[in-house]
């Protein structure tokens, strides 16, 4: 009987998870209500920089769910209280976590955010520069060797492409004319 109960709980969980997996965020039925003096454009300017988990990837400004509607109205209230854009973003980050803004609001995290790709790019740049420098260095020795030993380069030698196009055309015309 105990196994039966467990199976049934599992059944219940599966039904519910199935329902939750397929359920869509509850859509806002009514329009947003903002306090007087706050326009939709004011709200959207701030809301487009804040993200809630419900509509993934879409900012609070454009998400149709009731959750985001509630957040837009919260933004409107804060605007009516005279808060600035940065203060509002800080307020949301303090309450709902730093993940709600596109770039972390705390200084340490923001610096780390940009430090990592910049430093990796700089390191890559150093490696690339070093390699180009190496190529230049090998030039002297290789030219001497090639000249002295009259070596064949064992790769295909294409037509160089920094030739003046007019000259190239005359050349081709000459060659074709000879056939």
């Amino acid at each position: 009987m105990k196994v039966f109960t467990r199976v049934l709980s599992l059944v219940g969980i599966l039904i519910f998870v199935g329902m939750m997996a397929s359920s869509q965020p509850v859509s806002a039925q009514g329009g947003d209500k903002y306090p007087p003096g706050v326009t939709a454009d004011d709200v959207y300017k701030v809301a487009s920089q804040i993200y809630c988990d419900v509509c993934q990837g879409v900012s609070v400004a454009y998400c149709p769910s009731t959750q985001c509607q509630a957040w837009r109205e919260e933004i409107a209230d804060l605007l009516a209280q005279g808060k600035t854009e940065d203060e509002i973003k800080q307020h949301f980050a303090d309450r709902y976590g730093e993940k709600v803004t596109g770039v972390p609001v705390s200084d340490a995290n923001r610096r780390l955010t940009y430090a990592i790709p910049i430093s990796l790019a700089v390191v890559a740049g150093l490696i690339v520069s070093f390699q180009v420098y190496q190529w230049r260095r090998r030039e002297t020795r290789a030219i001497q060797v090639a000249r002295a030993a009259n070596l064949n380069e064992n790769y295909d030698r294409p037509v160089p492409d920094n030739v003046d196009p007019a000259y190239l055309e005359r050349l081709m015309k000459l060659l074709e004319g000879k056939q």
Binding site: T101, G102, V103, Y114
Partner: peptide, 14 residues
């Protein structure tokens, strides 16, 4: 302590 989550604002300038 926490993770860093990055959104569209991060990408624009770089």
């Amino acid at each position: 302590d926490d993770v860093i989550t990055l959104g569209p604002e991060y990408y624009r300038t770089p």
